[in-house]
Design a protein around this nucleic acid. Sequence first.
DNA 1: CGCAGCACGGGATGATTTCCCGATGGTCTT
DNA 2: AAGACCATCGGGAAATCATCCCGTGCTGCG
Lengths: 224, 224
Amino acid sequence: MSSNHPIRVLLVDDHAVVRAGYRRFLEHSRMMEVVGEAGTADEAYQLFRLMKPDVVVMDISLPGPSGIEAARRMLALDGRARVLMFSMHAQPAFARQALEAGAIGFLTKDTEPDALVQAVLAAAQGRRTLSPRVAEQLALHNVMPDERRLDVLTPREFEICRLLLAGMTLEEIAEALKLSPKTISNRMSEIRQKLDVRSDVELVRLASAAGLVPWAAKPGEPTN
Amino acid sequence: MSSNHPIRVLLVDDHAVVRAGYRRFLEHSRMMEVVGEAGTADEAYQLFRLMKPDVVVMDISLPGPSGIEAARRMLALDGRARVLMFSMHAQPAFARQALEAGAIGFLTKDTEPDALVQAVLAAAQGRRTLSPRVAEQLALHNVMPDERRLDVLTPREFEICRLLLAGMTLEEIAEALKLSPKTISNRMSEIRQKLDVRSDVELVRLASAAGLVPWAAKPGEPTN
DNA sequence: CGCAGCACGGGATGATTTCCCGATGGTCTT
DNA sequence: AAGACCATCGGGAAATCATCCCGTGCTGCG
């Protein structure tokens, strides 16, 4: 299936050193050629228009507009663009956004060099690649019937969640648990990340589905 | 019922001019005597301990601890203290807090001098006085079965509330309504005030009771 | 007309969120 | 036992948000 000419790759990462590393691995096999490097979403987009690479290897976190935003623009310009996203973490929220933006794959940065090369090859042929961790997280997110999503929370996070849903403010929770308000704040950010909600309202919706919210019992369920 | 000696009054307000005004009106009838003035909660509390006034006329908003806090302390010291609260606005949240703190009455600052004198007399005898506006607001708050509370919102506020409950973020709402994020922010503060909720979670609880939240239908109500 | 209420947003200040980081202690594995 | 991994706790910095206060403009009403 593979044609003879090398796969033309565009590298996007804000650290030149990291790009150099990728370049080494990718060009090692002679099956691919890095035709451009970019450090920001804007540069990446310009280069994409110029070079029309076969595959874009893109870091998620860039200064300014994110890699996801860059991917969105590329896909808007050319629906056949193959964008392979990279991220430090396997956070489902990022993965979902990336894939919704049209990315063909999502890898965490601890991916082995070999696997990276395989993923680029796969991308060039239009096949998807997901890091195992990412796949698992996403699966949970998509398949889990909402009421089980809260399971990703640690005991402590769950506790904080419970108090929040009871209507307590940040300060009150901090006092109740004898913790710094800062900790609660940090923990809540973590919770929102994990549950992929962008507001307290969405959190309540989730918790309500899980039956955690007495005053908003699910339709059809007995209240007592 | 009234004894012979004048009613001894403690005036608390951060503006000396305002205190002077009150003093004039109160002492005019010779039935009462201002035995002290304070500009902060702390001063008020000290004077209260010293003078044991029959009635405290207290402004809500003071620099530092609020008048409500001062009232709380006085009541803690002496459960028979008669504290008559004053406020610029007829906000139910303040009124509720003041009365829960043990205040014997709650007047808005547009009260007629005569009515003020009457209220102090009443307080001295242990009778409660509420400004009509305050009474109405409070009545709505206490009596209204939750699902009607949202009625205090203006159409625009209601609209914003709806979008918020749909899970939209501040920015998204601003964009949807083509308004400045600042306006939405301001408006949300207003909404929280009016509905007397301290968090989005409490707001959802309210809205849910009002049947405004599809995903959290009230128990027993058909969803479809 | 004057005045009240609603809608809109700027300014200032303080709180919260977010992202980053490091420290600690427990568990599990090799 | 050493190392990896995770949960928990919080500090720092920058961005965002909430709150309070202010002024504008519009509308309806006595």
